[in-house]
Design a protein around this nucleic acid. Structure first.
Lengths: 287, 287
DNA sequence: GGCATTATATAAGTATTTTTCAAAGATGGC
DNA sequence: GCCATCTTTGAAAAATACTTATATAATGCC
């Protein structure tokens, strides 16, 4: 799904398997990738305190060809931007810097999610949702607005959809589902007890349970389909909560997938919807 | 705010000013940029049917240094990618393609918004919010969940915040605001009549009205501060509504800015919050 | 048409990268 | 613990790629 590999991450991954000198090379690159893409092999070798052939071998082992091609790969990887800058917001950042960091972090999270999400699971989820007699979205806390947003999207598709953000209501609704219903459980950690219970109940009642959650979490055990979104390490309280962005985008993709499955007769329905809100609006100003 | 120039566009722009041979070079590059970044100067010269020094001169005139550095720039420009692929979802797209397009569209929207948003306005908005006696978020339709998400974020910061998604309630609340209160009005089009009215009322009552909306729309006339987010052309009904993503990210940035202004004593508060939800969760599984 | 200017290429020179190869170091078996 | 073997590393040489200098051709201007 990814356009091209992320060399920086690849280096980080292989760091442990490298020999002493090659690790020096890796560290020198990671310490300052921006400089690296404009350096000659000699400069990098000097910076890493190793010989030039070592750098060359490092490149070959990593991407299969020499240093110039490696620089090109690194440049690309840098441009799409893995966190080569520190994206953690620091207490003394100016508001402009904060904004930049948060936007960049959001984009990175989207890219990462894209790499991890398996296409076939999305396909299956779309199939289930498109055929569901009824769709229910459950979310708690920060996932509450996500569930409501999902409701809004599917509602626009004229589908029988509800969103619940109350544990008790969720529990009752889950118990009342039937085979042919789809329940989408949204949880960042996948470890929120009441929601796990609710998923189990829905599953037992026969509903298809789609979990949008942390892969490997307990919640996944009660899901028919798991759409994995990794829990980013929450090392810093300033860390922006941009995971919600990823959820919303994924749900956008699901909704669009369902729309496409539903076919062209729904376009008419959408047009009608748009028309219906027109008269609450002032006309567009001609520039 | 943009990171680096787009070489490809630059080449296209200069195409007319170039000499015959250099134009051959430019055309050879544009014809197949992917191959170019893995070619030597000799190969490119052969492909363009010119001599090597011509290629070199071309590079110098364009970026001020030689061919290797040019390749690096080209690689970056290729990676961030002017939209080479069509991001409009087509009716016969596979679900995987749909997902990719929607994620890419979301990232593009974030980038665009970042370029347009003026730093100083964000700073001012942060100042207003940090000092507000009370913060109210208003949104309708798709902006409803955005307002609720905003509420959730500021609530975590222990700020006196509410979110209303009902026109009447918004209107009443707006009338009841005072100087020192902040009202954040979220509207995609900026042309939704009731919301414009509400903004006017709040302004008259003395509140600071922050509009997160389409610049140049009627709503902006009743705002103290406008955070512009452009209305993307809605040419296609399949177009994902990823503008919400931009709203949420912007609000993330505002909330983080406020958090930083509030200083370190709030970290303790946040820790307490996190602790308070711990006991509703299963423990993290050790891998 | 001849001169000046610019554009391009050939060839020479320089820098960079890659390969080769041998030495040093690490690893494992006995 | 020592030797054989394999791996890692760097020095030097070879190959490649890039740049500069210079010459020639093309173009435009008077």
């Amino acid at each position: 799904m990814n356009k091209h590999e992320d060399i920086i991450r690849k280096i980080q991954e292989r760091l442990s398997t490298l020999s002493k000198s090659e690790r020096k090379v890796a560290e020198a690159i990671l310490a300052d990738p921006k400089t690296t893409i404009h350096s000659s092999i000699a400069k990098l070798a000097a910076r890493a305190q190793v010989s030039e052939p070592t750098v060359n071998r490092f490149c070959r082992s990593l991407i299969g060809s020499g240093f110039p091609d490696f620089k090109v790969s690194l440049a690309q990887s840098l441009a799409t931007g893995t966190p080569y800058v520190n994206l953690n917001v620091e207490p003394d950042d100016a508001p402009g810097a904060v904004t930049t960091k948060i936007f960049e972090a959001a984009k990175n999270n989207l890219t990462r999610a894209q790499e991890i999400l398996p296409e076939h699971l999305i396909s299956r989820a779309v199939d289930v949702l498109a055929q569901a007699r009824r769709i229910e979205f459950y979310g708690l806390g920060a996932s509450g607005p996500v569930a409501q947003d999902a409701h809004h999207k599917f509602f626009r598709l004229n589908m029988p959809v509800v969103a619940y953000i109350d544990i008790l209501v969720q529990r009752m609704a889950a118990a009342g589902t039937h085979p042919g219903d789809a329940v989408v459980v949204i949880s960042y950690t996948g470890r929120t007890l009441p929601l796990i219970e609710t998923a189990r109940v829905a599953r037992e009642a026969g509903a298809s349970v789609i979990g949008i959650t942390n892969p490997g979490s307990p919640l996944t055990e009660h899901c028919s389909i798991v759409l994995p979104i990794e829990e980013t390490e929450d090392t810093d309280i300033y860390t922006p909560m941009s995971s919600r962005i990823v959820y919303l985008t994924l749900i956008d993709a699901l909704a669009t997938g369902v729309l496409l499955k539903r076919g062209p007769e729904f376009n008419a329905h959408l047009k009608k919807l748009k028309q219906s809100v027109q008269d609450t609006r002032l006309p567009k100003i001609e520039k």
